[in-house]
């Protein structure tokens, strides 16, 4: 019982991290059809901004204030990744709309440059980020079952981001414009929506969420220039499995992959577990090639 509960919680925790990373992708890939391989590097940007804020708090502010650094780091991580995303969209991505494979290669290049930049600035070795003390310890459910506060915090954070995105996409004017552009670009443009601006903001939001994900990752381990690459392929699988264009699909995909991963790694070894998950995904796509929640479309090449 205790073991099962722990595994269940681990699976949930892995899923939540995957979801946080995949949410940004779901926007850029799912809605804009841009394969942003530099997404992992936006995660890295978020992680390093948390590291920077922490450094500043440690060195130049009173000891007692240290615990307050984390919310600030979250904000900065979002803002920085948002700004760099906006820059990237304006400078590069907008020339690559409608050419998904080219966007993949170009953003891969951007990712390489950003990684090397981080290596030059912060050094190649991983750095640790001290978590705020209010996240130490855990919630004791029963004997032998402790849910760490950090993991619970990430779960809550993901739920919050998910809610915010839902409200933005489905309940706000900006979100309505965004959906309009994604569904029928020409018609949206005819109705007076600035598609250029919508594209830029959408991409930047996707990047910003990656920054938040990076900030969350500092809670569970050391960070380094290649932190993003460890997660990016899994996150893409989440989007593919969940189906493109719907938030609920992304959430379901993340839950599926996270749970399966934990289950298989528990039942066999880590390396065999990954193979099994991959086979499951390929098998699943035989049944539903468009993913769990496909957006119905009459267009042939949709």
């Amino acid at each position: 019982m205790a073991l099962w509960l722990t595994q269940l919680f681990n699976g949930l925790s892995v899923s939540s991290i995957l979801l946080l990373i995949a949410l940004g992708l779901a926007i850029t890939f799912g809605l804009m059809r841009v394969i942003n391989m530099a997404h992992g590097e936006f995660i890295m940007i978020g992680a390093y901004s948390a590291y920077l804020v922490q450094k500043i708090f440690q060195s130049s502010l009173p000891q007692g204030w240290f615990d307050a650094y984390y919310p600030l780091a979250l904000l900065l991580a979002f803002a920085l990744a948002f700004a760099i995303g906006l820059l990237l969209e304006t400078a590069l991505i907008r020339f690559l709309y409608g050419r998904p494979l080219d966007s993949l290669l170009a953003t891969w290049g951007v990712g390489l440059v950003l990684q090397q930049l981080a290596r030059t600035i912060f050094g190649a070795p991983n750095v640790g980020v001290t978590s705020p003390s209010w996240l130490d310890g855990g919630l004791r459910i029963m004997t032998g079952v402790v849910f760490p506060y950090k993991r619970l915090f990430i779960l809550a954070l993901v739920a919050l981001v998910l809610l915010a995105m839902y409200l933005y996409i489905y309940r706000s004017d900006a979100g309505r414009r965004m959906r309009a552009v994604m569904q029928n670009r020409d018609m949206a443009a005819c109705l007076g929506i600035s598609t250029r601006r919508v594209d830029a903001v959408t991409f930047a939001i996707g990047s910003g969420i990656a920054g938040v994900a990076g900030c969350a990752l500092t809670l569970i381990g050391p960070i380094g220039p290649t932190i993003g690459t460890n997660y990016i392929v899994d996150a893409f699988m989440v989007v593919v499995l969940g189906g493109v264009g719907k938030l609920i699909g992304t959430a379901a995909g993340a839950l599926g992959i996270g749970m399966l991963n934990t289950l298989f790694e528990w039942g066999s070894t880590a390396s065999l577990g990954k193979v099994l998950v991959f086979l499951c995904i390929v098998a699943f796509l035989q049944w539903k090639p468009m993913g769990l929640f496909a957006v119905r479309s009459r267009s042939l090449d949709g």
Partner: peptide, 19 residues
């Protein structure tokens, strides 16, 4: 170090300017 920058730059140049 330069190689990685160079490689990254090439990806961008190749797709945008040199299809």
């Amino acid at each position: 170090d330069m190689w990685t920058f160079f490689l990254g730059g090439l990806f961008i140049v190749a797709t945008v300017f040199l299809p």
